[in-house]
Nucleic acid binder design. Structure first.
Lengths: 344, 344
DNA sequence: TGCTTTCGTGGTAACGGTAACGCGATCTTT
DNA sequence: AAAGATCGCGTTACCGTTACCACGAAAGCA
């Protein structure tokens, strides 16, 4: 049986109320009583029950974070940033992992509500996440969407500029002479995938290169195997691409695997660019040319927006923060020096 | 204000008790009442308050997981495995990140208790974590230690065989002709670091190679920069090592950075081995020769042990599971074919 | 038909804390 | 020295839900 406040009170020879005061405000408690209570707490190993105090105070000091995949270094960093800021503000983070599955997302979302989190940070699985968010509104729980906008939703949002980022990557490839550029993307229900495809198209259009739909293949962004299979389809084309743009850092692993199987050396036989670094890998062997988004900042800023809402009443109905990405040229395109910088 | 059960009851024209029954057992409720209650729940977006129900039922359906660093792919996989098993058993996972900091570990541990988790999985920061565990015992909360044993503690444990693994890695290096083998390790308060150092020594002894303390350098296992600096010390020796054994997958990133700065090519100028893969990186560019521990299995088995304790009373006082690691030879030692396999 | 057994439902207490108030004892003020 | 202010602490009620018991109505049984 877990130690309760009354047990502490009895041992210290005071009432429960005095124990509560020692734990919380620490005002108006005599030195003697406080000492005895503290001793009793230490002896019994008492830990206050936050369910009980949360119930009456209507505050739990917890915020929920829901991401599709904690194993994705991008989201891992988002979470770390969020946790850092939350911790400093005296909040705890409860983390959930949806594997990009809508049902699981919905389940965890309700679980977080059930645990009475005071607010939520959500990287939604996609546009279909929208109905789930209505529950949050009905219960008056503030939340901030991260990374992906949701069509038709108008709450706080922290995201990158996927259109511009993708355009920049493709321009780089074009400047290096590539005309057949494949793209491994994920479902268009995810706004970043939509936007990056648009950036791709814009870059082609600007260079007067015909858009060829067969160069676009789709895979789940959680599953490396799916990206591998999609890449194989690209490489099997009669007229295969000389460069591939991967929609993110997970898919790019599948692309690399497929290329290696085919005996294609990168960048000699195939150029490769993608969004978001593979944390650790990028330091161990800096190789991939990427648009690096400030993932940790996504987390810190989103948390800040949320804390604002929790603290006072923020006047604006909606706040959108767009964070720029860094373009880093490494080896995977065969251009150590960014040859197209002069043109940009 | 959040929607409560009474509001649902009022709208459905029944008592709170009936609403509770609809939500839980779903026994002994008339079809009509159930329908009306379910409609009211949907309309209002009602989510039951788990603080309240947890308070009275003494069950929250949550287990806590405490790891030093979610950004470390090894721990990320442990967490994923744990979450998978927990979810299937109807439990939720609350995840915490200590950054290897004892104080933070202690804080989160109490937080988890405060949230009334039913059990805990812990990758402790080190031997000094022991006092914190006493709080768990006093409160009768079952827990399983993962990855690192704690001197003097005798609870359930899931770990790898670090001694044998390290010995195998070093034998490999010796078979390739290396005699000057450096090791970048972390504080000996962490059992895996101790054990891996012992494996290192055993392998040297078996080959009648003199142990040289100056070849062992210590760094924090969380911080890549520290590993980098430690490696620099090794490379600055008058008689620098021709091979380096990194205690884990994070430190090895710092080793690689330091080597690159010095213009040392791996494996040409320096051979490199380590414990645990860098997830994603290992698939993107399979390069490192490693002992790969089944991280996800660490998580699943530990969770299973915990669930056993939660379900019934497990008879044994203590259970220890030791999981073997896979030795994978890749390029970082210059031996694609494991030349010493015949000798092993 | 009268009796017991089920079924569907509601009332009440309790989980472990805290807000609000009350009350005697000490301290301050004029 | 009397009046009020402050201090230290306890009592009571309540947060939202569920365990437990009770009760009327319908159903089963003799």
């Amino acid at each position: 049986m877990r130690v309760t406040m009354r047990q502490v009170a009895e041992r210290a020879g005071v009432s429960a109320m005095t124990v509560s005061r020692v734990i919380n405000e620490s005002l108006r408690v005599s030195e003697g009583a406080r000492t005895r209570v503290e001793a009793a707490i230490a002896e019994l190993g008492y830990v206050p029950n936050r369910l009980a105090s949360g119930l009456i105070r209507r505050k739990t000091g917890a915020i929920g974070v829901i991401v599709p995949d904690v194993a994705n270094p991008f989201f891992t960093l988002v979470v770390r940033g969020a946790e850092e800021v939350a911790w400093r503000a005296g909040y705890h983070v409860i983390l959930c992992n949806t594997q990009g599955d809508l049902e699981r997302e919905r389940g965890y979302l309700e679980d977080m509500l059930a645990f009475q989190v005071e607010g939520l940070l959500i990287v939604p699985a996609g546009d279909q996440s929208r109905p789930s968010l209505r529950v949050l509104k009905k219960n008056d729980v503030p939340f901030v969407i991260i990374d992906r906008s949701i069509a038709g939703h108008d709450g706080d949002l922290v995201q990158g500029d996927s259109v511009a980022g993708a355009r920049r990557l493709i321009e780089h490839l074009i400047a290096l002479g590539h005309r057949h550029i494949g793209m491994v993307t994920e479902t268009s229900a995810v706004s970043t995938a939509r936007d990056r495809l648009q950036g791709y198209k814009e870059a082609l259009a600007a260079a007067r290169i015909q858009f060829r739909p067969e160069l676009i293949v789709e895979a789940s962004a959680i599953d490396v195997g799916a990206a591998h299979d999609a890449t194989v389809k690209l490489l099997d084309l009669l007229d295969p691409p000389t460069a591939i743009f991967s929609v993110n850092n997970i898919a790019v692993v599948g692309v690399a695997e497929a290329a290696r199987e085919r005996g294609l050396a990168i960048p000699r036989d195939l150029a490769l660019v993608c969004f978001d670094d593979i944390e650790h890998a990028s330091r161990f062997l800096p190789f991939l040319t990427v648009m690096v988004q400030p993932a940790e900042t996504f987390g810190t800023i989103a948390t800040q927006l949320l804390l604002d809402r929790l603290a006072g009443q923020v006047s604006e109905r909606r706040r959108i923060v767009v964070l720029p990405a860094d373009f880093i040229v490494r080896e995977s395109c065969g251009a150590h020096v960014p040859v197209d910088d002069a043109a940009a």
